[in-house]
Design a protein around this nucleic acid. Structure first.
Lengths: 363, 363
DNA sequence: GCTAGTTTTTAGACCAATCCAAAAACGCCA
DNA sequence: TGGCGTTTTTGGATTGGTCTAAAAACTAGC
């Protein structure tokens, strides 16, 4: 495809046009060209136009590496998630990307797979690239001092979804505590008395918050049945946990799940046992991923708005970069219980299910 | 958190330790330190250890911007996808990330949302950052000359999943043509004669390949019923299309879908109509995302192995970077029909469904 | 026409690495 | 001890921008 020895170029070696060349072509100094590139108001209109014409004519390409060397900003961010294959994170990253894009920022992405070591390597790498800041969904088992370390580096860091270390720190996430309470209240209102909670380690905040919501709800409603199963948070775990629970006596009449993946697994597990989710045992998930409307029955879930969280996190990061010493902020979005058919629906499980995120009515 | 005026540092201003400082501390020259950093075999063992000790002692941070200025490589890649919220891309990005991580590469990610303009902006930005190469899932409506433009830039580019422009180019994807044929053959073997195909625009290769597979299969099996519906490829489209089809006479007895999202939508639409997917109308998807095992019935789908495609694409890119003038390569992974219960299963739709990706048996 | 004040432009140092070619150090043997 | 071939080390040029402070070019007022 590419002819060897005679690379096709509009004009000379396209990779080597520098500020100096533009300056010569336009009959001004290097400094002036630099000012034009950065849209400085110092430059006179006529000069600006002249320089811009030269830039076009020579096919100049701005060299961000060189600019970063002397300047203070790279317009670059590092983003760490622990499971990009989870559609929840997909939506969140889309939100981050949209917000950053609007501000002329661009981001590195790493998938830590919940490995603190891998996360650490990436963060060090980001430091070498002189990114302006980090968006971090800390991997499970992250050393809480990591936040202090980043602070010591002078690296702005916004934690997302989970947080480690001591406040004050920048954080964007959902109110998981409240989310679980909403789910519990709903189930209690439907008459459930034996409600279990499925999934999570205690290593990080997002899990602790959920568990606390569970325990507080039990107390508030004076429920004596208490069953909290720890696990990683995949479909497979959901299947295993529900099977374990249904074999017990008494079995729960409802389960609230750490996330939608676990809830999907729980529903699947119930089917394996010949039980009908939503009839024999109510199931509520957390996240409200798009897939929640699928399945039979459609999953009732606590919506945590990943796209909005992503945008919010990006906004926070940009604000911190602009004012490094400003007060730390925590943005905690309110969740919303999205009622569908997996928690004792009035309609038959195989009946019509809505596609739009509009809550179904329940008696 | 961060004390103003007295930033906490282990030793001096941590951000300003340079090669020069290391050289002075270790009693060698700047050049030698540089060689040590790049793990050059030229350096004597004793010197290497001495320098490494100084690097640790002073808390040195490598400056990749500076290195990129003089050197030829940045160990950096740009990745463009068009819908990161789609779990298929999530898995693919995870594959890319894993493969790059192993080779010490790190990547920028952009979500084009199928906007060629946004894609273009990102690519130009990547050029300014001097990335070593691009992994591109071209946005719908991408001008085919884009590939020539990138080539003109001297920028290695591997297209993924879709491709535009004329071969030879580097490409990693799945054999969508063969995938559709497998699905069609399976349906015909089950006795279906009226099979429709749902979804896709004709703008890019991946859709054309699917359609061609559909039409060829019709011919090969001498089927006269032909119904191919164009659309974007979301759940919503699946619902709409299946409802339109079922209102026709004759209605299809089976549908093959552009991707799993459309297939999920189709199953949902059938339920809306009071029909049972897999009984009243067989449904086959493409991608085999993890969610395919959910739902009722579990979705039969053509597995296209996104994680593997991602790894393969990354591998191709690294190879091209190493040998810019080598022959272009196209890696096309064979798809595999993952038979479950949505296409005329022998078991009852509400019965046990498997979680593991092991094919269900059919009479 | 001269001066003071404002607007534009510029020279030259600087950022932190890599590259190249040449110099220094080393080892070995006559 | 000198000479020769390796192995290591090094100085200085180079990369392509930004920054700062000062110079130059205008403008208006007297």
């Amino acid at each position: 495809m590419r002819q060897d020895a005679s690379p096709r170029q509009g004009q000379r070696d396209t990779a080597s046009v520098t500020l100096q060349d533009i300056a010569a072509h336009a009959g001004v100094s290097r400094s002036t060209v630099s000012l034009v590139l950065r849209e400085s108001p110092l430059v006179a209109e006529r000069t600006r136009l002249k320089v811009q014409r030269s830039i076009k004519a020579l096919g100049y390409v701005y060299n961000r590496g060189a600019a970063a060397l002397r300047g203070s900003r790279t317009s670059t961010l590092g983003v760490v998630v622990y499971d990009i294959a989870n559609p929840f994170f997909g939506a969140m990253v889309a939100g981050i990307d949209a917000a950053l894009n609007r501000e002329g920022y661009v981001s590195f992405l790493a998938n830590s797979e919940d490995s603190p070591a891998r996360q650490q390597r990436f963060l060090e790498r980001m430091r070498e690239h002189r990114v302006d800041g980090i968006l971090l969904c800390p991997a499970e088992g992250t050393d809480p001092t990591l936040i202090d370390t980043l602070d010591g580096w002078g690296m702005p860091c916004v934690q997302v979804l989970r947080h480690v270390g001591e406040p004050p720190f920048d954080y964007a996430g959902a109110d998981f505590h409240q989310g679980v309470c909403q789910a519990m209240d709903h189930l209690v209102a439907l008459g459930h008395r034996r409600i279990a909670f499925l999934g999570g380690h205690s290593e990080h905040s997002a899990t602790r918050e959920r568990w606390q919501g569970y325990r507080e709800s039990l107390e508030r409603h004076r429920l004596t049945y208490q069953r909290l199963l720890r696990s990683t948070v995949t479909r497979r775990d959901g299947v295993a946990m529900i099977q374990q629970l249904m074999a017990e006596s008494p079995a729960p009449s409802a389960v609230v799940c750490h996330n939608d993946l676990v809830a999907f697994g729980a529903m699947l597990g119930l089917k394996h046992l010949g039980r009908v989710p939503g009839v024999d045992c109510a199931v509520i998930g957390t996240d409200d991923v798009e897939e929640a409307t699928l399945g039979d029955p459609a999953l009732t879930s606590v919506a945590t708005h990943p796209h909005a969280i992503g945008e919010e996190a990006a906004r926070l990061a940009l604000r911190r970069i602009a004012t490094p010493e400003g007060a730390r902020e925590q943005v905690v979005l309110a969740p919303r219980l999205q009622v569908r058919d997996s928690c004792g629906a009035t309609r038959p499980p195989s009946g019509a299910t809505e596609l739009n995120p509009a809550a179904g009515e329940h008696a």
